[in-house]
Amino acid sequence: MSSLSRNNVKVSGSGSRTILFAHGFGCDQAMWRFVAPHFEKTFKVVSMDHVGAGGSDLDAYDSEKYASLDGYASDIVEIARELGIQNGIFVGHSVSAMIGVLASLKAPEIFDTLIMVGPSPRYIDDGDYVGGFGASDIEELLASFADNPLAWSAAMAPTIMGNQERPELGQELTQSFCRTDPRIAHEFARATFTSDNRADLPKVTARTLILQCRDDIIAGENVGEYVRQNIDGSTLVLLDATGHCPNLSAPAEVTRAIKDFG
């Protein structure tokens, strides 16, 4: 099967370079809807859903393949090869920052630039390393999926929006955003929050920009700083935005930072 239909890949814009946007845990490509369109004049813009999220092909979900971030990284490489991407820009939010690292190590020719929004190479504290979560925090999170799968119900039901306020969303009146199968969300959470990619950071050869929010409980400032220190020549920009999703809460700032680096 084509990786393009499997991952609900959408291509827009035009330009000699390609910029690919990848979403993190908990949502889908809608995460980039206020950022990606600003690149369409100068880039070929690619957005996609990881398998299990959004409009991806749920039949392609394989618990074994996606038990680690490596399975998601293989998909990125397949998409890039199918689209013939060379020396492109990879923009990864949250866990997709590390998925981008793994993809660029597998196939260094596809992306010469990595933009990481709220990256974390390891969420669980380990000795001197402070990831921000204790092992018991993550156990509690993973247990909650089994105990209370309906926590994800807000993302399950299509929502009908009043479109006067948001005319740009008019054509998606009954679409649900961030659709997630609770069982797959559970396994993606495990792959995400138990990952450890610290050893991969020094191997990165792509130009790297880290966009760090303030007051982000998922990936704190010290974690962004750790990533900067361990990727040679990387740049960290501390945004004014707070929380974990500046691509939604401060899209103009994120867009500007990516363009300034590009």
């Binding site: 908990g26 949502c27 929006m161 955003f177 959470a189 982000d216 998922i218 999703c245 809460s249």
Partner: peptide, 24 residues
């Protein structure tokens, strides 16, 4: 803890995208 992660990764994005969420 699970509520915090759920809120940051899923509910806050949904609120921004849809403006409302219900039955969480």
């Amino acid at each position: 803890m699970s509520g915090r992660i759920l809120y940051e990764t899923n509910l806050a994005p949904l609120l921004r995208l849809q403006r409302t969420i219900s039955e969480v």
